[in-house]
Design a protein around this nucleic acid. Sequence first.
DNA 1: AGAGACTGATTGCGATTTGCAATCGGTTTT
DNA 2: AAAACCGATTGCAAATCGCAATCAGTCTCT
Lengths: 166, 166
Amino acid sequence: MSNACRSGCPINLTLEMLGDRWSLIVIRDLMFGNRRHFRELLTGSEEGIASNILADRLKRLVAAGLLTKSDDPAHRQKAVYSLTEPAIQLVPLLAQMGAWGSRHTPASPELSIRAKLLEEGGPPLWEAFMDELRSLHLGAPAKGPSVLARLQAAYEAAVAHEAAGT
Amino acid sequence: MSNACRSGCPINLTLEMLGDRWSLIVIRDLMFGNRRHFRELLTGSEEGIASNILADRLKRLVAAGLLTKSDDPAHRQKAVYSLTEPAIQLVPLLAQMGAWGSRHTPASPELSIRAKLLEEGGPPLWEAFMDELRSLHLGAPAKGPSVLARLQAAYEAAVAHEAAGT
DNA sequence: AGAGACTGATTGCGATTTGCAATCGGTTTT
DNA sequence: AAAACCGATTGCAAATCGCAATCAGTCTCT
């Protein structure tokens, strides 16, 4: 993935930075999965990323300025990964990606609930969610009710509804 | 890139389909560069894709239902590649990708003009552009003035302005 | 009709990337 | 002190990438 800088096209440069199979998965888990530590990212997601791949992607994303790495004050051995402002501004991109995937791939209906809610909310909801991420990751003040909790509640309701029979 | 289907998450499935360094470049050129033939895609873009990679991506995108391949009635040897409806619905995703890249990568200012216009236009402009792509690729009737021409004119004006000194 | 250019690919091959398993030294918990 | 946990690192085989050369079929030009 090193840098050849094939062209100055913004779409191309975005692909050079994020266009692989794992980088956006990591960012998705930090963004929607509320995960902060290496181990949470390693075992928490359904996709099963290998530890060396995760280590490599975290290193690259930190180097690219999308994540910061800091020490956990409570546990000296733990590293805490946080989204930076450029990564937080990927919310609209991931929202569109989720919306497209829920419409044009055989995505799980329960997992698509969040994507559809984010899509229906549109830019206003994205902004609220970005504010929330800023407060979670940068210590900025939160302004409204938790978008993350709302998305999660809708997902769990869908799962419960599914489990309770059609 | 074959199919392991790591999870049913819509973001993951979108990445499994499009998350590599070239697939979206090909779609970008079909979408914004008005290219239809293998040779145009091969030599037309700044990034310099290799012919075997292009052949592979075209094959995969056709198999995934994002492109169709048909014979050029004028030149029997030529194949014509067209965007299908699912690919046309990638417009918002590519718009967000361009917007993010123009803000957070060292993208060329001239090449960022189109991305910024698409972003400022928002969903209404995207819809108009998608209608235009449908008319170009599927033979549906066009409804308004050409968005593509407007974007291209803005780009060329920026290049001319740049060439004429600051 | 024949020479040559152009079409969409395909092949060979070396370099890189991927992903799995095992392991590491250090830290915290028991 | 022993065991579990932490964020990685290494070895290795497989897959992928990307460059160059090449291919058979089609079109143009004379």
